[in-house]
Computed example of a mutant assay.
Amino acid sequence: IGSIDVSTKKAVTARYFNMPTSTLGAASQPGQELFGIEATNGGLVIFGGGELLIRDNVIVGAIGVSGGTVAEDTNVAKAGAAALK
């Protein structure tokens, strides 16, 4: 059940900031400019598995995947985003 909430938050986080959650995660590490951002907006998820959905160079949404390892979630989300193109 927790994975449902995490996957939804990954999609929302990616769309809020128009970047993959893995990119946001790298920018939010200690000493980085966005450190602590995960505590904003009602809680964000800042590890891989959230990707933007882009069609014809327009962001049309986001996908969030959870339930596997971070690498697996990232790969599945990227595959889903690629399938839309």
Rank of each mutant, 00 (worst) to 15 (best):
I1P: 13
G2I: 15
G2E: 15
G2R: 15
S3F: 13
I4D: 14
I4V: 15
I4F: 11
D5E: 14
V6I: 15
V6N: 06
K9I: 10
K9E: 13
K9Y: 14
K9A: 15
K10V: 02
A11M: 01
A11F: 00
V12W: 07
V12R: 14
V12S: 09
T13S: 09
A14F: 00
A14K: 01
F17N: 10
F17P: 03
N18Y: 14
M19R: 11
M19A: 15
P20V: 04
P20Q: 07
T21G: 07
S22T: 05
L24G: 06
L24E: 02
A26K: 14
A26C: 05
A27M: 15
S28F: 10
S28T: 15
S28K: 14
S28H: 09
Q29H: 12
Q29A: 12
P30Q: 08
P30M: 08
P30W: 10
G31Q: 02
Q32G: 03
Q32I: 09
E33S: 13
E33Q: 14
E33N: 12
L34E: 05
L34P: 04
F35L: 03
G36H: 00
G36R: 06
I37E: 05
I37A: 13
E38G: 14
E38M: 07
E38S: 12
E38W: 11
E38H: 10
T40I: 08
N41K: 14
G42T: 08
G43P: 06
G43E: 14
L44V: 08
L44T: 08
L44W: 09
V45N: 13
V45D: 14
V45Y: 11
I46C: 10
I46F: 07
F47Y: 13
F47D: 11
G48P: 09
G50Q: 12
G50H: 07
E51G: 04
E51W: 04
E51C: 11
L52Y: 07
I54S: 06
I54C: 05
I54N: 06
I54W: 02
I54T: 09
R55Q: 15
N57D: 15
N57Q: 13
V58A: 13
I59D: 04
G61N: 04
G61I: 04
G61L: 03
A62R: 03
I63H: 01
I63A: 03
I63E: 00
G64Q: 01
V65D: 00
V65P: 00
S66G: 08
G67D: 01
G67P: 00
T69L: 05
T69R: 01
V70A: 10
A71C: 04
A71Y: 04
A71V: 12
E72T: 13
E72V: 07
E72W: 07
D73I: 01
D73C: 01
T74W: 03
T74Q: 12
N75Y: 13
N75W: 07
V76A: 11
A77G: 05
A77P: 00
K78N: 10
A79V: 02
G80W: 02
G80K: 00
A81P: 00
A81L: 04
A82T: 10
A83P: 00
A83W: 09
L84P: 06
L84N: 04
L84E: 03
